[in-house]
Write a protein that binds this DNA or RNA. Structure first.
Lengths: 207, 207
DNA sequence: TAGATTGTTAATCGATTAACAATC
DNA sequence: TAGATTGTTAATCGATTAACAATC
């Protein structure tokens, strides 16, 4: 039996395992090994086995892991054996791109609410969804029982917007604005900043 | 004197230091301390000092770090004391959002070329730039001397597109498609996948 | 059975932190 | 000067890897 919390770095690899498994499923494969799974993602076989063993015994000696079974288990561990509703704040170009993206649903998520404060945009539709007034954020988010927000707003207002959605009951934020958010410690925040990743790579590019 | 390579995990924090410093600059601050810099980013003061000391002695005992000086040094270390041209492949919603984003220039980058293979899109303009035919990728990328690519293409073609731009001389790829790319080991690749980050957070959200 | 591969333990490796002399 | 804060060393902490008995 395992005691204590799972290291976050292990948790961060679970979605990657899941994604690789889903790809293998598409390829028609039935089973895989820690070796193969690791190779696809650049991890060692030992690390794959160690990570998975934190949550249970999912494999069989000699044959490896059933792809569909392990995939189901990981979905359950990550709490995506359900659909999570998301509120998207900011209906600019990036917001539109995200709202139109078809890849959320079969990976556990759905954009359920789109907010903006631009009167020009409020009332417009993106796909099936109407852009609604950010002034109504608290009411609408609470009513829909949404716990996850994606922010595609200008950096200058990201902090204010974040505080507002937290007031509305949001527990997790995926922030596309290049702004470190100061929020209560129980709020989960992740950042997506292409510049940070580009700058990471240029370190290694010859001068 | 330092010997040996800098750990990648240290390099990955440098863009974050730089971003925090730029924010402080905007706030009109002149100097900062390892303590303050760490607090903003969630790192310990000791870690900030340790990281920076890998590259030189940038601070002064008693007073800390000059924000503008440290910022310049980090820019130089990250090789962004210049502008890097980028080729953007995929002129869909996400490609448009990125091409219209104004934040690249003052952080060391410029979208210099946009490619797509859709005859409907080729010839259209995004801002000043005309979308050009991906069939001409090798020629155009080589002629422009571009080393960095951003891929906003469908997952199904990401691998093929990546191989093609590598043939054209691309050394670093920022991949928005949820596809692990198999490329020669000297090619730098970074991934931006919102689903991976959402799934990471749902692990911690109560069931 | 023989071969393959798991889950786990112990050893190794690497990253973070604490502490402090140096010094602005 | 006294207070503050650096850069660095040594200690601690945590993550990865190697190895192997168990077993499908």
């Amino acid at each position: 039996m395992k005691i204590g919390a799972i290291p976050d770095i292990v948790v961060s690899r679970l979605p990657q395992y899941l994604q690789a498994l889903n790809l293998m499923k598409l390829e028609g494969k039935q089973t895989t090994s820690s070796q193969e799974l690791g190779e696809r993602l650049g991890f060692s076989a030992a690390q794959v086995r160690k990570d998975l063993s934190q949550f249970g015994e999912f494999g069989k000696q000699g044959t490896g892991y059933s792809i569909s079974y392990l995939s189901k288990q990981l979905q359950s561990i990550l709490n995506i054996d359900r659909i999570w509703d998301i509120v998207l704040v900011g209906a600019g170009d990036l917001g539109h791109a995200i709202a139109n993206y078809q890849g959320f649903t079969n990976r556990g998520f759905r954009i359920a609410l789109i907010l903006d404060n631009d009167p020009q945009k409020i009332g417009d539709k993106i796909g099936q969804l109407e852009i609604q007034d950010f002034a109504l954020a608290r009411e609408l988010i609470r009513k829909a029982g949404i716990e996850i927000a994606m922010l595609t707003v200008p950096a200058s207002v990201a902090q204010t917007v974040a505080e507002e959605v937290v007031q509305a009951g949001i527990k997790a934020i995926l922030n596309y604005a290049p702004t470190p958010l100061k929020l209560p410690p129980n709020i989960l925040v992740q950042y997506l900043d292409p510049l940070i990743q580009l700058q990471h790579m240029t370190y290694y590019l010859a001068k």
